[in-house]
Design a protein around this nucleic acid. Structure first.
Lengths: 228, 228
DNA sequence: CCATATTGAATGAATGTTCAACAAATGGTC
DNA sequence: GACCATTTGTTGAACATTCATTCAATATGG
């Protein structure tokens, strides 16, 4: 439903876990905002709640409170709690998707640079912040037992993976490497997800900077001719 | 509480998601089993439920049913639902911990072989199966919002990470590599967790075999003198 | 004034916890 | 070994709470 509808506007907002709700926004807030504005507001409040309380403890009341609205409002805009959560997941999926596609677009034609840019995109502040990562992880935890989530829950989808494979294949040819592109692409994308996981868990020893360092070390090791 | 108490017995059982409960076990089952047996039985039923229904939908009734016992029994052996879940997480943590330590013990003195063995241990059937992985992910999804889980939820703890760093440092010296041991250790362990994640999600393109292939490709790229 | 949005109390279902009754094991005594 | 008392384990119904959902009343904007 909300596929690709202005996801970057929200992305540019970065972390907003400190300000408790959308109240401070310049949008008309008190009552009678447009449908789209209210829905996005509620989705953002849902992400807040997922990040703060986890999936299991996220309640409709908490979402409504977080948005500064009344209890029944969520069932009006979204039919049920389940649909709200699906819409939220779709929203994050679209945002992530649009982000790496835009980055790739601007990267130019050099495949080595394209791969580098994709890695950077993963650790961009607009995507890779505690709030969003926590929300992703909350969904992942429920994905296997909910078929509806499964398709959307891996932010890196089949197409993303294919782009990785193609880039690895191109680099292999131009650099004369020995690996299988498919295998190396899996190793690389798995490492990116693993670094996300570390950041989500919030262990002190992993920051966005050290994660990026690790990713670069991997690139240098796997493609020494290109990133030496 | 259950730290290190015979975790391998359960590990050897492998996947048991098909047989619905512990009923078929030769242990005395009908009534009045020993405290430890009942607790382990309930923990296994909890893992089943987490894997099948996810964290949010796991109920005390489902756990009791899964173990073939009555409703009130869980509150007798564990004081509350929260304590049952913590005990379950502790149980899995201990099992994982004991598994890689035992593998490392048997690996001999060659650091290259030790690292290889640690990677293999991660994809051993007793540890790396759908049931256990799903349960891990269920806990991870709740970890950031629950301080109690945080320490136990990263199966790979600080000590594990230090072992990785030390091995990377040793290999760097003997192979004359350029990377920073700490950074490469992070990249490697992140990739392992990322591969787990892929396996948990159950996407068709990643199996235990392809995951192991990817891990080996990483080792070969990062330590060409040792795994060429 | 009509369509649309919003409120907040009422409702009912789901679920964790408690507990009194009951059953099985244990151990001591004859 | 038989008997009984005590401890320990188990059951299932009752209870209290939390929460998603519904909806009649109300407010808003066009």
């Amino acid at each position: 439903m909300w596929s690709m509808t202005a996801p970057m506007k929200a992305a540019a907002r970065e972390e907003r876990s400190s300000d408790t709700s959308g109240k401070t926004e310049p949008e008309k807030r008190g009552r009678k905002a447009s449908k789209e504005v209210r829905q996005q507001q509620l989705i953002e409040a849902t992400i807040d709640s997922l990040a703060k309380r986890g999936y299991a403890e996220t309640t409709m009341a908490d979402v409504a409170d977080g948005a500064g609205l009344s209890r029944g409002i969520v069932n009006f805009h979204f039919e049920s709690k389940e649909k709200l959560l699906i819409a939220t997941l779709q929203y994050m999926y679209d945002e992530y998707s649009a982000h790496w596609r835009a980055a790739l677009q601007k990267a130019g034609d050099d495949p080595a640079r394209q791969l580098q840019v994709l890695v950077w995109a993963d650790f961009d502040r607009s995507i890779c912040n505690k709030r969003k990562l926590a929300a992703w992880l909350a969904f992942w935890g429920e994905a296997k037992s909910r078929p509806v989530y499964q398709a959307l829950s891996s932010s890196r989808d089949a197409y993303y993976q294919q782009v990785f494979i193609d880039l690895c294949a191109t680099l292999k040819e131009s650099g004369g490497y020995a690996y299988e592109p498919q295998v190396m692409a899996l190793a690389l994308s798995a490492m990116l997800e693993g670094l996300w996981l570390r950041l989500m868990m919030g262990t002190e020893d992993t920051t966005r900077e050290t994660a990026l360092q690790a990713a670069n070390a991997f690139l240098a090791a796997a493609f020494p001719k290109h990133y030496g």
